[in-house]
Write a protein that binds this DNA or RNA. Sequence first.
DNA 1: CATATTAGTGCACTCGATGCCAGAATGGGA
DNA 2: TCCCATTCTGGCATCGAGTGCACTAATATG
Lengths: 203, 203
Amino acid sequence: MHDEPGRPVGPADGVRGRRPRTTRARLAEVALRLFARDGFEATTVDDIADAAGIARRTFFRYYATKADVVWGEFDAELERLRERFRRAPEGLPIVDVVRTAVVATNRFGAGELDQLRTRIELTATVPALVAHSAVQYQAWCDVVAEFAARRLGADPGELGPQTVARACLGAALAAFTVWAARPDEDLDRCLDEAFRILAAGCA
Amino acid sequence: MHDEPGRPVGPADGVRGRRPRTTRARLAEVALRLFARDGFEATTVDDIADAAGIARRTFFRYYATKADVVWGEFDAELERLRERFRRAPEGLPIVDVVRTAVVATNRFGAGELDQLRTRIELTATVPALVAHSAVQYQAWCDVVAEFAARRLGADPGELGPQTVARACLGAALAAFTVWAARPDEDLDRCLDEAFRILAAGCA
DNA sequence: CATATTAGTGCACTCGATGCCAGAATGGGA
DNA sequence: TCCCATTCTGGCATCGAGTGCACTAATATG
């Protein structure tokens, strides 16, 4: 995907200190392979570090927790989402804007889609990851609530924006998990359908 | 509330072995007081055990994890919810049934309401509890999805029931957290309003 | 070559959680 | 009364995640 912190290895390019021995992306790759093979719980941080050729302690310089590996660069995705909300046309209903934004931030090539499936299946299946994901979802909700609040002329903490944001999260999660579980489904179609149900008042 | 496993202490009543030294409810009381005073993270299981006059190891016989204390008897509440769905009138829209059931399963006396507020504030605020709660919410969603599936004539794992269930969860959570944060709000009113927004398609 | 900068790593430690097993308390029956 | 089955307690050892600290290694610049 993209190689993150600094120059991976190679000729100098004007940055001072020692070059990192690996990247977040590579660590994630290694770890996800182990998770898929042995399970999340059965894989220790030592295993990941060994497989990646770094020390256990170093792993925690790249990711704060074992679970964070599964979430990759979610912060960046949140920022993209925020940007899309900023540029959203005024006329469009909130739910439609969110649906469009979610669809847009999840356009991947075929290879990446497979990795996404693995990630989603893990986060929806492994209890420890279900748990950890909630914190990420909260951040996602905050972004949506901020947008909904602007539209509703309310404070992001009020009931209106909060309800809209969390309901949108629910629809998106339903779409993602159903899609991840069935190889033949289309992600966009799932998202469209879920948000259609939401816009119809769950009737 | 209710004193759980076996006779608390006192005269025999026909049960064989040694009598438990405490109860789940008492442990929860002790723990919640410590959480409220020192914070969830800063309170160790040793602290709770000491305060309750039992050994650390014994604590884990009453609750599987430190976080479980905050959730008390959620299993039982899920069962009550399931029962209500079973008895729900056929004509009522899904969302209304869920709203009514949630309101009904959360009728408490004034004293208990305070404890509920503490619990909700903790679960919505402390990251470790936000995380742990997700597992409980998943169970909640399963119950709602099961009901929605019956109504929609679908499988509980399909997109329709999943979307409805998760959206309902979102509405309920929004109501609970907004309520917990504001002393003057009324829980029933919050729930009604949140589900009204949901039924209106978040518009 | 000296120095600042940045990354890697070993060590010790805390804390949650678990398995195992011995011991304490209790009721029932020979 | 004495032993036994039952049930709960709790000590001990162990694992694994996560953290703070101090030291080492690599690299660019002057």
